[in-house]
């Protein structure tokens, strides 16, 4: 057991290798919860590096980065000869290289399609309700989205129209959250760009629904409560507009922080074993990280629910004037 822990430790920190220093705890944590582009390993070890090379080549093929120069870099304490390419940014802003996080998003998309397209066919085929547990489980979740997220925030006619969007949001975030809990994969929703992207949809939805349902002048008339004195209007309007911007921002930060915090805690608990190199700490930290993992399983669901529920509330509130 001690040997195993030392082995893992040497793997993580590579204490014996002189060319590279030990990774600090900060480095380890950050490398687990942040996105970074794939390198090209000149001498790849293992499946993950081979896979990384494949993605690197794909990026080259798609023209997302230029051929870079070979450098030697320390990764997890080992010196590697890698090729680091400079991104070719679209419009000078968007670095569209396919990263681990992008792959995770695609995996979530793929899983959603894999689950729900056959599911729709099965449900349509059996109008009296399927006896399959698999179908009933997803049906219960869809019912949950309908009853607890969409129905309370939309009137009946609109609820039916809004269902597909909120089902997409809920299950996309849910799948992304749970993918992050599988060891070796990454939490795409633990990134401000991803959660910000999702929140932009909410913001766009608020504006679009407000404009469609209440007319283009909605932004001046719809968001301030009716019946306020004329002068108060000039005070309230900027506040309400600010509120509209802040709401998606809060969504962004909430999902990001919730999905990241748990992972950081789990990594730190595991790292404690490497730090102390002791059985007792090992038992304690592994069981504690397991408890946090259980908590994360719960948080992953709750955050998907909260994000979707608040989106529904925000978008639903712009259907009618206040």
């Amino acid at each position: 057991m001690v040997r195993f822990v030392q082995f893992v430790n040497s793997f993580v920190t590579s204490a014996g290798n002189t060319a590279c220093g030990e990774d600090s705890m900060y480095d380890i944590v950050i490398s687990h919860v942040t996105d970074k582009p794939f390198h090209y390993f000149v001498n790849p070890h293992g499946i993950s590096q081979l896979f990384g090379n494949m993605i690197f080549k794909l990026n080259t093929f798609l023209g997302f980065h230029s051929e870079g120069s070979a450098v030697t870099e320390c990764l997890h304490g080992h010196p590697y000869e890698i090729i680091e390419a400079t991104p070719i940014k679209l419009f000078g802003i968007f670095d569209l290289r396919i990263t681990k996080w992008v792959l995770m998003l695609w995996l979530a998309l793929f899983l959603c399609a894999l689950v729900f397209i056959p599911l729709a066919r099965k449900i349509k085929k059996s109008p009296m309700g399927s006896s399959s547990r698999w179908v009933n489980m997803w049906e219960a979740l869809i019912g949950f989205v309908h009853d607890d997220i969409v129905e309370p925030n939309f009137e009946h006619g609109y609820a039916k129209k809004a269902m597909p969007y909120f089902l997409s949001v809920f299950f996309f975030i849910l799948f992304a959250n749970y993918l992050g809990l599988i060891p070796g994969l990454a939490t795409s929703t633990g990134n401000l760009a991803v959660t910000g992207g999702m929140a932009l949809f909410t913001l766009f939805g608020m504006f679009a629904i407000g404009t469609i349902m209440q007319g283009p002048l909605w932004i001046f008339t719809g968001i301030v409560p009716k019946g306020v004195p004329f002068l108060m209007y000039f005070l309230l309007w900027p506040i309400e507009v600010m509120g509209m911007i802040i709401k998606p921002f809060a969504l962004t930060v909430r999902l990001f922080a919730n999905m990241t915090a748990g992972h950081i805690v789990i990594i730190i608990f595991i790292y404690l074993v490497m730090m102390f190199q002791s059985y007792l700490v090992g038992v304690g930290s592994v069981s504690l990280s397991l408890i946090i993992y259980m908590l994360e399983l719960l948080v992953a669901f709750i955050q998907a629910y909260i994000f979707t529920s608040l989106s529904a509330m925000f978008i639903g509130s712009s259907v009618h004037a206040h």
Partner: peptide, 29 residues
């Protein structure tokens, strides 16, 4: 870090998800 590229990928991925699932799954479902 907010990577604009990743943000764009998120938006593209989600729009693709919406389009695929709206037609193929959510509507019939």
């Amino acid at each position: 870090k907010v990577e604009p590229g990743l943000l764009l990928w998120t938006i593209i991925t989600f729009i693709v998800l919406l389009l695929i699932l709206w037609k193929a799954a959510w509507k019939p479902l």
